[in-house]
Design a protein around this nucleic acid. Sequence first.
DNA 1: TGGCTATTTGACCGATCGGTCAAAACGAGG
DNA 2: CCTCGTTTTGACCGATCGGTCAAATAGCCA
Lengths: 206, 206
Amino acid sequence: MAETRIQSLNRAAILEAGLEVFSRRGFRGATLDQIASAAQLSKPNMLYYFPSKEAIHRELLLGLMDAWLDPMRRIDPEGPALDEMLGYVRRKMALTRHYPRESRLFANEVLQGARHIDDTLGGELKELVDRTAAQMTEWIRAGQLAPVDPHHTIISIWALTQHYADFDVQVRAVLGEDDPLARAERHVDQVFRRLLTPPDARSAGA
Amino acid sequence: MAETRIQSLNRAAILEAGLEVFSRRGFRGATLDQIASAAQLSKPNMLYYFPSKEAIHRELLLGLMDAWLDPMRRIDPEGPALDEMLGYVRRKMALTRHYPRESRLFANEVLQGARHIDDTLGGELKELVDRTAAQMTEWIRAGQLAPVDPHHTIISIWALTQHYADFDVQVRAVLGEDDPLARAERHVDQVFRRLLTPPDARSAGA
DNA sequence: TGGCTATTTGACCGATCGGTCAAAACGAGG
DNA sequence: CCTCGTTTTGACCGATCGGTCAAATAGCCA
């Protein structure tokens, strides 16, 4: 009873189309006809693979959350504090560069109340953040990071990195550039380097 | 032919209701019935004051843009560089605290392509940003600000301040606090203080 | 009070929404 | 070729969308 080749192909096409449309229009703004035509399927044919609009949306969000949390999970408590934090920033920025639609899908969802994922937000995500914040507190106590509010620092990393995906229309309009992300990556690294470098390490290095 | 009392009262009620609904649902997700019932008016009665859903939305966005740009306009080239920049950050954060719905309205619009305001984005906004960035470049040359990318620093200020309004569901879920903004204001000040304080001024002050 | 304008409303319209259904077309094994 | 399960489709459904309209009502000034 395994998935046939045509099934997995069509399911993938529908999810790809759903990502495209949901990320640009939001859940209520997207229509099944738009998704179906983007997937080059008829509407009833699409509903043969997914029972409803909600089901497509839910599957996209579910698949998203894991990839979204992964960069934070990969922070190594044994590694050098500043490098670990800047590595996290870099990995999160890579998500923005390579998966801007996923970022906008998430932004749309949270902006409109996050009704479909509020359990994940208050559960798995909060646990992971609390654990990472505790690790940062240790690093600060050990003098490996400058004193900061760990929770709000994590939120700042999200804010800065996701902004380049979610508001890219505005970013491009204001910068007038084709590829703002090269500069953006250097800038974001600089922001958190200056925020997190402990005072007694400031004379050394570039 | 001036506006009567009842006209200005009803128009205000409609705009207030429109802000509430548009900011939580986005343009396409909002319905005229929702806005009308929030304004305690019948739908045809509401359309007696505004010709269409678009007209309500457009008037809200127009009124918004001016207030949104004001904190940046009030940066004083004659003032002390760091204080002026941190003052801008503080004013922008005050908008987030007092007008989160306006922030979400704007976020919804930009997220979905900013089709209703792209002329403002590429015109008035870009000019103001370029002028402010030029001022920052002077300050950097004079050693009053640490070397940064001015454009991306401005974008960072937007990203951090607006994030607390646009993603407040996520912020509250992760922090588990009732009023995250008190801490947030201190944190955001710290981020840009460390980013912008010139190297030779770091030994002085707190 | 009468009369005129400004305001409000219920009923309704065509378009579009998410979703259903029965029937047709397809495809692999015999 | 036939058979049977899988896949695809056109036609259609009730609900809801943004918006209209004629008629009813309220407010105001002579």
